[in-house]
Design a protein around this nucleic acid. Structure first.
Length: 573
DNA sequence: GCCGTTTTCGGCCCGACTGTTTTCAGTCG
């Protein structure tokens, strides 16, 4: 069983936790965390790279030492340093770090003085009143621990962006009604349009007399106030989501927005660049000899450190700073670039609306084309179409197209890839379609090799056009199935097939980094909503978000093209 | 432990809030 990137990342994370508890050099700790982050998001498998003898120290945040450690983990399945560390510091201690308010210093003290090793020990000690007797702890800290233990769930799920939007919108409206408030904007991972967010970070510009912080902690949905100060407060909502509010004066708006948007890694890199220029960047501005020289807009802040404006979606310290220095930032795709949707269902299979309704909705969105991709027969639960029904639908669409003006309905299907790699309908039917969208809907648990071969075999069929939702994951619900994505992308490139970025906010596969990998390989993608209703067509924007995070430009995406160009791209080589 | 238009050593982002203190450590983002 090959070692997964996430497993290597987990080991590095735990190492960082343990080193921190042992009060190791904090920069060493950070190095492990940075490396874990790089590895977790990396679209290629470390195990493969090791096998191919790739120099891993070329990867950002990975040096000679960590490259060696990755190799050891991949080949031996374990790491001596990790064993050594866990022999003197119990591994389970790092679970306690997940509790709000407990950091490495306190965990160490709890362990050394009260022999508290895990959550259960902690609960007992807190309820017996032992913790407040420890030096550095007190009554309030013990109380806080007790409260946070009650809400503690291992691995709290992150909130999907679409859910976060519904939570943020009314809160923003509420805050805008405070007196003396100018801007209210949601920053953080929300503004970077990450597929899921951990909390909400809201930035407000307001005068000194504003009551916005009082108003904030008195919001209807507040479950508990985590902290309240004069420029910053934090609350937890009843839905479980935490919200941070930061108030700055108007003159600091850009600097604060830049700071509060993150990511953390991006900000650290920016501040390091500032130091090289003998400048200091904080949330109040850019300072030269304690004199503010910028801060009103983000553009100013970037300009002072010698960079053009960088779009929030790119701020992950994944090469955007280098690209910015070289003036090679991508011109990111926008919603306006999209000319049609290439994956939509009707009530012929499991959609909620009729063909006419779907087409009408596409017209209302200004599209030049929409393709209809109902399920194929194998997916019986979705009332998948058999040969006869597909041919009927083709006829109906042909008739509809004759009546339509300014929009063309493309004849397609969402075709099951069977377990042996065959497609779910005979080629004699498929050849009547404009193109196909092919997908895996069952047997998710095949080995990585088998699942990859299954898809490659399907691609060998000349009527295979687009691989739909390539990872099959459902955010917070279903893990992606195991595939060698790079191999699949290479195969697609050779055969003239394409991959889909599924815009559904529960799916969003490909991931941002996978999008970037496709772009770097020269593989074009389709951004499609997989709409099962007319309203689902509006999910396109989530696909655009993800595409932008993956550095995609309009030219990287096929459904930004005119119908004529699109048809050329859909044709197999 | 990483990194380099200061390139193999000596740096490593910066500030707010809380609680336990009495000037600050710990935690968080």
């Amino acid at each position: 069983m090959p070692v997964h990137n996430s497993e290597i990342a987990d080991i590095f994370e735990e190492l960082a936790d343990l080193l921190e508890i042992e009060e190791a050099n904090p920069f060493r700790v950070r190095a492990y965390r940075n490396a874990a982050r790089t590895i977790r998001g990396y679209p290629k498998n470390m195990a493969d790279l090791v096998e191919q003898n790739t120099d891993l120290s070329k990867l950002p945040t990975i040096g000679k030492d960590l490259a060696g450690k990755i190799k050891v983990i991949v080949t031996k399945g374990k790491l001596p340093l990790f064993e050594k560390l866990t022999s003197r510091t119990p591994k389970v201690l790092n679970n306690m770090l997940k509790i709000q308010g407990l950091g490495p210093k306190r965990v160490k003290r709890l362990y050394q003085h009260l022999n508290i090793k895990n959550i259960d020990d902690l609960k007992r000690a807190a309820h017996s009143g032992k913790i407040q007797t420890l030096e550095g702890f007190g009554e309030k800290t013990e109380q806080m621990i007790k409260e946070n233990l009650e809400h503690f769930v291992d691995e709290a799920p992150r909130t999907k962006l679409i859910v976060a939007e519904d939570i943020a919108a009314p809160l923003v409206e509420y805050l805008k009604k405070s007196n003396d408030v100018k801007d209210v904007i949601v920053a953080g991972s929300y503004r970077r349009r990450q597929e899921t967010i951990g909390d909400l970070d809201i930035l407000v510009t307001a005068g000194k007399r504003s009551n916005v912080l009082d108003r904030f902690v008195n919001y209807d949905e507040v479950d508990k106030v985590i902290s309240k100060g004069t420029t910053r407060s934090a609350i937890q909502l009843r839905c479980g989501l935490s919200v941070d509010l930061r108030v700055v004066p108007q003159v600091s708006y850009g600097a604060a927005l830049q700071y509060f948007t993150g990511s953390k890694a991006h900000n650290i890199a920016i501040r390091r660049m500032a130091i090289e220029k003998k400048l200091k960047v904080n949330e109040y501005g850019v300072f030269k000899n304690n004199q503010r020289i910028a801060g009103k807009t983000e553009e100013e802040v970037y300009r002072q450190v010698g960079l053009p404006y960088i779009e929030p979606e790119l701020r992950e310290n994944r090469g955007e700073l280098d690209a910015a220095k070289k003036k090679k930032l991508p011109t990111l795709i926008t919603s306006e670039d999209i000319r049609g949707d290439l994956h939509c269902h009707t009530n012929a299979s499991d959609g909620h609306h009729t063909l006419t309704q779907m087409v009408q909705a596409a017209i209302e969105r200004g599209y030049e084309y929409i393709s209809i991709n109902d399920h194929s027969q194998h997916l019986t639960v979705a009332n998948g179409l058999n040969e006869k029904r597909v041919l009927e639908q083709i006829k109906t669409i042909d008739q509809l197209n004759e009546k339509l003006n300014g929009i063309v309905v493309l004849k397609s299907i969402e075709l099951d890839i069977l377990e042996d790699g065959r497609l779910d309908l005979p080629n004699s039917v498929l050849k009547e379609l404009d193109f196909t969208v092919c997908a895996i809907h069952y047997q998710f648990n095949l080995s990585r090799q088998k699942q990859t071969e299954r898809i490659l075999r399907a691609m060998d069929n000349p009527y295979f056009t687009i691989l739909a939702h390539p990872s099959g994951r459902l955010i917070n619900r279903r893990r992606p199935y195991e595939i060698d994505l790079e191999k699949i992308m290479e195969a697609a490139l050779q055969r003239g097939c394409l991959l889909e970025l599924n815009a559904h906010p529960d799916r969003l596969d490909l991931s941002d980094e996978a999008c970037k990998m496709a772009k770097d390989m020269g593989l074009k993608l389709a951004i499609s909503t997989d709409a099962h209703s007319i309203h689902d067509l509006d999910n396109m924007r989530f696909g655009i978000n993800q595409a932008r995070r993956g550095w995609l430009e309009a030219s990287d995406v096929i459904n930004t093209r005119s119908l004529k160009e699109l048809q050329k791209l859909l044709r197999r080589k």
